[in-house]
Design a protein around this nucleic acid. Structure first.
Lengths: 248, 248
DNA sequence: GACTTGATTTCGGAG
DNA sequence: CTCCGAAGTCAAGTC
C-alpha cells in the first residue's frame, strides 16, 4: 500500500500524478476549483467552485460538493478516465459508451491530489433487507396469519415473480407481497397485478361481489400510508404489520 | 481557501486534524485501512480493508471502495460526526435521529487525510428532465397528436397530480403521463389511476365495452417495454414516442 | 443485450 | 413532519 499526495501542484504536476495513478489503478481524490459539464442521458453544467473529485479504477467518477449524499455530477463505472492540460486548465474527462456519455471536469486550480491503491475487503454483510423478511416468514409462517402455509417463493406469473405464494387455513391461494419498510399505493398496485395474473391462470371467477375472493392478496410491511390502506381495502386485500427483523 | 493535509499521521494527529476540520466546516477526505459498521434502517458490517472516507460539513458520510458509483456504506446529511481514539484505533462515528442510525468507521491505520473549506458554486443547470419534456409539449402540443390542447399541468386528482391534462381534437378529456426515458408497466398503472380518478370525478361511464372511453390516457415516453405496451393496449391507452429534448 | 425490481435508495416539493 | 413521485436514479438477478 502506497499513498501519493501532492499539495497545490501545478497543472502539469497534477497531470503526471493523475496519469501515474491511472496506471497503478489507484483510488484518487482531488480537491480543487473547477467547472463541470456532463453530456449523455441528459446534459448539465456546473459553474466554478471548490469540489472534491473522486476517480475510481473501475471507471467511476464522482464530483462532490460540501452538501448531500449524492455527487453533484458523476460518471458510472465502466468509463475511461483521461487527463490533459488545455487552455491553462487541468481537464479530467470520463467517457463511456452505451449510452454515450461524457463527464468533463476543468480545474482552474488543483489544491490537493492524493491517490492510493485499494484492494479487497469489499464484501458487505447486510441485515434487514426484503430477503431477510422473506426468510423470517418462511421460518414462521404464522407471523402472516395462523394456518398460512408458504408453497413457493419467487413464483412466476405473467405479471412477474411474486414474493411468496401459499395457501391459507381454508386452502385458499394467497399472494404475499413483501416490503421492508412503510409503503405507498404503488405496492398495492403491484400486489393487485399478481393477484389478477394468478386468478387468470387458475381460471378463477373474476367477478367482484359478495363471494369470497378465490385468490387473496396480503401485503406484509412494517406500515402503510392511508392511501395505500384505502386501495388495499378497495381490492379486498389484507395488511400484516411486520418488521424485516425481530424487534430488539 | 485552505487545504489541510497530513500524510501517514498517528491516530492522535489524525484526530486533531479531524476535529479542527469539523470545526471549520471542511469537506474531508480520509484514506485508510478500516472496518465499518452500520446500524439503523438496516444493519451491516464490513471487514478490514483500504477505503476512502468522505465527511461533509452537512453531516453526510461516505465510505468508498475502489468500485462502484455507490458508497459501500454511508450516512445521510443531517448527521453529526464525532471522532475519538479508542482501543488503538481512530473511530469516526456519524449519528442521526429520525430514524436513529449510526455509522461507525474504525481505522487501524490512516494513510492520508486532507480537508478543504468549500463554499458556493452548488447550482447545477440540468437539461433533459421530465420538466423539459413537459415544457416541450406545452410549446408544441401537436407533438402529442394533432389537435391536442393542454389545459392544465399538475392537475390535482384523488390519485395525485397528473402531469398534463387536456382535450383532444374531439374535445375528449386526455390525461398525459410523461416519462423522460423508456418505461415499464408501472407507468401504465400510474396513468390508469389518474384516468380512473378523472372518470370518477367527471361522473363518466366506467363500463368497459365498445363505447369509446370518455377519458383518454396517453403515455409520452421515448419508448416502452413490451409488457408496458400490452398493459397499455389492455387499457385502451396510447403511446407517443417523444424525447425530452429535440434530437440533435 | 433487454427487462424487472429492490434500495440503509436519495431528493425535492406539496400539504 | 408525512406523503408522493422523479432520478443522468444505481445495482442485481433473470431471461
Amino acid at each position: 500500500m502506497t499513498v501519493t499526495s501532492v499539495h497545490d501542484p501545478s497543472h502539469r504536476e497534477a497531470l503526471w500524478e493523475l496519469e501515474d495513478a491511472f496506471e497503478r489503478g489507484d483510488l484518487i481524490s482531488v480537491f480543487g476549483r473547477c467547472t463541470v459539464s456532463y453530456e449523455g442521458r441528459a446534459a448539465s453544467d456546473l459553474g466554478a467552485g471548490d469540489r472534491l473529485l473522486v476517480l475510481k479504477p473501475d471507471g467511476a467518477a464522482l464530483v462532490h460538493t460540501d452538501e448531500g449524499r449524492q455527487p453533484v455530477n458523476w460518471q458510472p463505472p465502466g468509463s475511461e478516465h483521461h487527463a490533459a492540460v488545455r487552455g491553462g486548465q487541468l481537464r479530467v474527462r470520463s467517457t463511456r459508451t452505451n449510452p454515450d456519455e461524457t463527464l468533463t471536469v476543468r480545474f482552474e486550480r488543483v489544491h490537493h491530489l492524493s491517490a492510493m491503491a485499494v484492494t479487497g475487503g469489499r464484501d458487505l454483510t447486510l441485515h434487514g433487507s426484503e430477503e431477510d423478511l422473506r426468510t423470517r416468514i418462511l421460518e414462521r409462517p404464522e407471523l402472516v396469519e395462523p394456518g398460512f402455509e408458504p408453497r413457493e417463493t419467487e413464483r412466476p406469473s405473467s405479471a412477474g415473480p411474486m414474493d411468496v405464494f401459499g395457501v391459507d387455513a381454508d386452502g385458499t391461494p394467497v399472494v404475499v407481497e413483501l416490503k421492508r419498510r412503510r409503503v405507498g399505493p404503488d405496492a398495492v398496485g403491484q400486489l393487485a397485478r399478481y393477484v389478477r395474473a394468478l386468478k387468470e391462470e387458475l381460471g378463477a371467477d373474476e367477478r367482484d361481489g359478495d363471494d369470497p375472493p378465490t385468490v387473496r392478496g396480503v401485503l406484509v410491511a412494517p406500515s402503510i400510508t392511508d392511501r395505500a390502506a384505502e386501495r388495499l381495502a378497495d381490492r379486498g386485500f389484507d395488511h400484516v404489520a411486520l418488521e424485516p427483523t425481530p424487534e430488539e
